[in-house]
Design a binder for these strands. Structure first.
Lengths: 121, 121
DNA sequence: ACTTTACTCAACCATTCAGTTGACTATAAT
DNA sequence: ATTATAGTCAACTGAATGGTTGAGTAAAGT
């Protein structure tokens, strides 16, 4: 089985990591959790409090974030303490940054402008 | 109906845009399409060629990217020409950047190091 | 005029996802 | 010893996702 196959200069693992990161962050609740954790470590109950959903639901969200490697969960007595991990986020930023302020937007604007001029002749 | 409600200094629209952007990018096929479009404008058929799936499937992926505002699709005769738009990507990068190189990782590393020392005593 | 190309659309399918509830477990507090 | 707290787990639901196929349409090539 080929596991280290590269697609577009990217290993399958890196692809999977990006899948996990982006899909973890595609949910507003989970982004809120990330934002909250940026203010410091917290327990699951504390995290869940502001949300209008069951503890189980938040626990599941947290699990998604944890599986994606975005947060660390540490069991301490009967509480779970969660904190943010920056590494996978950095990978996502690195990927995105390639396409961010892309010249294409400026080209678009120009193309539209020319098309409009053409129509108005 | 409240439409401009702000949650954590972010409008619901901005939240929805981030939802759309991250979830659009959570699929490898769609990220490949974005990467491909960074090399320049292409038609749907051209885009679809390298993928081992139906044209319909790729068309759907493209629709997702278009709905998320990540690509522009322009009908020209019987072909659809697609190009990348940088703006929503920039928003995603801006959001992510807040949490990227977070001090927490360094703290983690330190904590783990100390814990290890403790164990080795 | 006929055929091919480049799609779209609708219907369907299997899987995943976000949420629920109710029962359970382990730790901490009284 | 009992009770409350913090959380997990399994089972269920409804909606969304990623894919398929087959039929249809509009433009281009011959």
């Amino acid at each position: 089985m080929i596991v280290n196959q590269k697609v577009n200069f990217m290993t399958v693992q890196q692809m999977a990591q990006l899948d996990a990161t982006f899909s973890a962050l595609s949910d507003g609740t989970r982004r809120a959790i990330v934002a909250r954790l940026a203010d410091g470590e917290t327990t699951l109950s504390d995290l869940a409090a502001p949300f209008d959903m069951s503890l189980t639901a938040v626990s599941k969200h947290l699990r998604v974030l944890s599986d994606a490697g975005l947060v660390d969960i540490e069991k301490r007595g009967r509480t779970r303490h969660c904190r943010l991990r920056g590494a996978p986020i950095k990978e996502a930023v690195d990927w995105l940054s390639k396409y961010e302020s892309f010249w294409i937007d400026r080209f678009d604007a120009l193309a539209r402008h020319l098309a409009k001029e053409e129509n108005e002749k």
